[in-house]
Design a protein around this nucleic acid. Structure first.
Lengths: 286, 286
DNA sequence: GATTTCTAATGCTATATAGCAATGTGAAAG
DNA sequence: CTTTCACATTGCTATATAGCATTAGAAATC
């Protein structure tokens, strides 16, 4: 035996033959487990490796913690149980408890400070969140209203079809709406999508209903993100008229290509937003 | 490490000939190790836990893989060695090899497919990347030029001081520059920072040097992200004059609060960008 | 009272091992 | 020529254990 060292601490010989899980199957070595965290209770089964369809232990631990956070029992800054404590409470090994915590840390739910402990992270601010107009209004406690300007199928928007990954002469649904805040028009938004793929959109009551909502609920599209180009421009005659502002007024222009989770470009949208009525918030990273 | 990538640079420390520590210590249970991945070779010592100051084994494995990606030996889509193979090559335990891979997966460098393997991820697109003007120009292969308009200390910008987390009457460094593309002015940018914390900034040749660069290299500040507010406005008399555009021309206004890694607000900047000369690209997520 | 030193708790890296679960391949069967 | 099925490979969850590294507070010292 060359490596007397490792042999010396007899790590191997000890822990595997009579193996924890073996022993556990028979005698679960009951602990004085407090119920504070709703221990897994399936521990005995888990010992032999969970029977399929059972949620992994580390996720159950995460859920237990998440529940306590959601319920307000654990507030931002509060410490969550330590690795060793979780292991004891949930009757899992240290590594498993650790797995649970470090994944939550990676997801930003908790923060870990070496030597100090693990703490509930401050609530995250949702930056760069893709929201439809209706949703933005809703998040401000308001109801969105729109006036439909045009609505129909076009076939000559070659460039936009290309951006959507379609043949140049594809049939595109197009919806042009003026967005209202109260009675006042604040934005003009134009959306394009494949008329062949989502024919039903044109029939919906789009002056009241969210396009995003329709796509996600009716068309079973899962939106993922949008790549946007933002610049400033000025109101031409038509837009000035529609938004009831002087011609030449500054406008924020946002052009967005919206992708679904299958990384398919799904909607192309262009919006003109009245100066002073709209601020875009984003976060950029170094 | 909250945002973005774990550093891409290579670590010097590791592979220097397995020499030093190996010789020092007992025989490492020699394997038939192929050299393909430059195995760690420090196994024996690591067995008893590496002596301090040494980079962790799992990071060394990551670096080895990263190097092979950077060197072009591993291209997107190529498989990287499996957990078991890495464990063998680097003479570490399976869990350690796994740790290395799964962290790289979490950082988006590789993708793991259960049962199939681990593969180099397609190169990431850098969206929402915080770049200074100089850096943006550099990324386009151009050199940035500026004309300094004003430069000095102000004490009456209460609101901005507050945003920077300073007392209302703090001394603030202020720098106002016109950004040039060729000879043409395209933007007016104004930056504020704590004059007490970074006094040296005012002395730098800021018409030629990047403010971001100065902060990061000279002041040892690590910038992390910026929260930005974007809207459209029109040129007042002064801006119109400085940018040589008609009064009332539309401008893209970007106000950003730039944070360092210690989550301290470090710089507040406001920029006015000529319409047609500047497009902001961002990605937003659902 | 302020400073330094010790110590317990906690997170981090690592070892070795076991069995389950998904994937792709190649041989056998239809 | 296709389909099926077994198998090797690979990733995933889990066990048990060890020692190092950092932190914060208590105790001892100045």
């Amino acid at each position: 035996m060359v490596f007397g060292e490792t042999g010396g601490k007899c790590a191997i010989s000890r822990n595997l033959p009579e193996a924890a899980w073996l022993r556990r199957r028979v005698v679960p070595r009951e602990g004085k487990g407090s119920e504070a965290m709703r221990p897994l209770a399936a521990a005995a089964v888990k010992g032999t490796m969970q029977s399929r369809s059972e949620e992994p232990a580390y996720k159950q631990i995460q859920n237990a913690i998440r529940r306590r956070i959601d319920a307000g029992q654990l507030k931002p800054g509060n410490p969550v149980p330590s690795e060793r404590e979780l292991a004891r409470l949930h009757k899992v090994s240290l590594m498993t408890a650790r797995h649970a915590l470090s994944e939550m840390a990676r997801d930003g739910l908790v923060e870990r400070r070496h030597g100090a402990g693990t703490f509930v992270a401050p609530p995250r601010v949702h930056f760069n969140k893709l929201l439809g107009y209706s949703e933005q209004m809703a998040s401000l406690g308001l109801t969105a209203h729109s006036r439909i300007i045009t609505c129909g199928v076009v076939t000559r928007e070659h460039e936009i079809a290309a951006r959507l990954g379609l043949a140049p002469t594809s049939r595109l649904g197009r919806l042009e709406r003026v967005r209202l805040a109260g009675d006042e028009p604040v934005a003009l938004e134009t959306c394009y999508w494949s008329a062949d793929e989502f024919p039903s959109l044109l029939d919906a009551p789009l002056d009241r209903v969210s396009l995003f909502g329709l796509l996600e609920r009716e068309c079973e599209v899962e939106l993922a993100y949008s790549d946007e180009e933002i610049d400033a421009t000025d109101a031409d005659l038509r837009i000035a008229d529609l938004l009831q502002i002087p011609r030449g007024s500054p406008l924020l222009r946002i052009r967005q290509l919206i992708f679904s989770t299958k990384s398919r470009a799904t909607v192309y949208a262009m919006g003109f937003y009245r100066s002073g009525r709209h601020t875009l918030r984003v976060r950029r990273f170094r």
